[in-house]
Design a protein around this nucleic acid. Structure first.
Lengths: 271, 271
DNA sequence: AGATATTTGTTCGTATGTATT
DNA sequence: TAATACATACGAACAAATATC
């Protein structure tokens, strides 16, 4: 069912017969790896799959739907349409993960416990690769929150921008899983439901200190000094953690919205 | 959020019209959160959903399939059957995530860069909660690899057990996302394809040191000393990283199903 | 811009499989 | 064993989207 839907503990005796749909899902997955298909490549069309698997249209469509939800393919209508191999987007991966963590009632403390050790690593791993354009972007983001906000809305925007700052740093890391994890944690923070309006109330501590840290970070990166970058982020996170700790907040019901719309990149045709 | 949530403002110009299936998926998700349905609760049956959404059987089934793949529901046949709310299993969450990271070509270095900072945190967070039974389990696992392996198979089993050791520690952490991440990293290491048979060749360094670290960790946990536990793990990881670094290995092609039941000769199917 | 061909999307009716009683 | 209640699967027809001319 799932790509490597593992082991689905089949309750010892009397395995429930394999469902046709799942067989087809697996068969298509095999087809993908065996033919070495990559993003953009086309699968046989519905009609052919129906013939090939001797299955009905509905069954084949269910299988394709399963693959689509897993982010493996996308399906387009029209001439030259059909199922195309996709690379799962980061956003979708995060949504899927959120569904899992949703039930776990994460706290801010949980998230910061990870951030305080990961963000320094992230900064260090980005330091050798960030370019002047990236540094400029960071400086631009700081400018969003380097002043007192006029109203609650601006205050909220400033808090989001602070998280975006770290998101930009992640873009320059050469460690994909570290970057993904950090960005995911940032997203979780953005999705917090406020028991005590964290992001709305005036910050309990000086913004100046945070901004100084971030400017220091940019300087350290310019000097290509990963150790310094990590140290600065460690201090920054430790301070941020202190402010956030104790706040009650839980994950929002982001649950329902899923990014849909696969990008309309087109103009591709693989026979 | 209300029943008639305007969340899906019908795509003004440009975007393709919302597909019926996706509408139903979202509607069911809304239904779940609005009714506060939890694991084990039943959704309306197929027939009722068909009536409720004025959609055909096939469309409703596609929607249910999508929810099933996301780990949100499971469907059972027979009297009293239907769609039931599920808690996504950790295994499924990991599989879905693997699909995303598969394309990213992770290296061992990438994984250890995270482990070396996360595992110490994990040990610290588990220290206050682990009980004597857990400590005994850890000691039992160590016994699997506290001696020279007889053959390659045992050597491999020993390496897997070393990872399981940390998995047990994760079970006692009170930080769900930290525990999940650490276990996921462990799983990635288990799934490595060997360019240079990492787990098969004799270990390049003494096993004694690793085991000493782990025994020290158990002692520190017994004394309820999180700081010491973290420090020991940091040393342990740093040493392990040294051994693994430089090894070339990539994520395995878990891509295609590895079901419990191994590939029996494929049945031929009439075209 | 409009017509057309191609391909997915949706519906309906029916039959089969499976678990409960 | 049989009856029942439910999902699972099939097939044909029709609707909608979209690339091409």
């Amino acid at each position: 069912m799932s790509l490597h839907d593992p082991i689905d503990p089949p309750a010892g005796a009397g395995r429930p017969r394999r469902k046709r749909t799942d067989e087809i899902v697996d068969a298509i997955k095999r087809m993908i790896v065996e033919h070495g298909l990559g993003p953009g490549d086309r699968l046989p069309q519905e009609r052919e799959l129906i013939a090939q698997f001797a299955a009905s249209k509905g069954t084949v469509r269910e299988a394709l739907k399963a693959l689509e939800v897993q982010g493996l393919i996308s399906v387009r209508t029209g001439p030259g349409g059909g199922a195309f191999i996709e690379r799962m987007s980061e956003g979708r991966a995060m949504s899927l993960l959120s569904n899992f963590l949703f039930a776990k009632n994460l706290s801010i403390a949980n998230i910061y416990e990870m951030r305080k050790v990961l963000e320094p690593q992230l900064a260090a791993s980005a330091t050798p690769h960030i370019d002047e354009a990236g540094l400029k972007r960071l400086e631009a983001i700081i400018r969003i929150y380097d002043h007192e906000p006029a109203d609650a809305t601006e205050r909220w925007n400033q808090r989001m921008a602070e998280l975006d700052f770290h998101g930009v740093v992640a873009e320059y890391s050469d460690n994909p899983i570290l970057a993904f994890t950090c960005r995911f944690l940032q997203r979780l923070l953005k999705e917090l439901t406020i028991a005590q309006d964290i992001y709305v109330q005036p910050e309990p501590v000086s913004r100046a200190s945070g901004i100084r840290h971030q400017r220091d970070l940019i300087a350290a990166m310019r000097k290509r000094d990963p150790a310094a970058a990590a140290a600065i982020l460690a201090a920054h996170m430790s301070e941020a953690e202190k402010h956030m700790l104790g706040l009650q907040a839980r994950l929002a019901d982001r649950f329902l919205s899923e990014e849909a719309a696969p990008a309309p990149a087109r103009k591709r045709r693989t026979a």
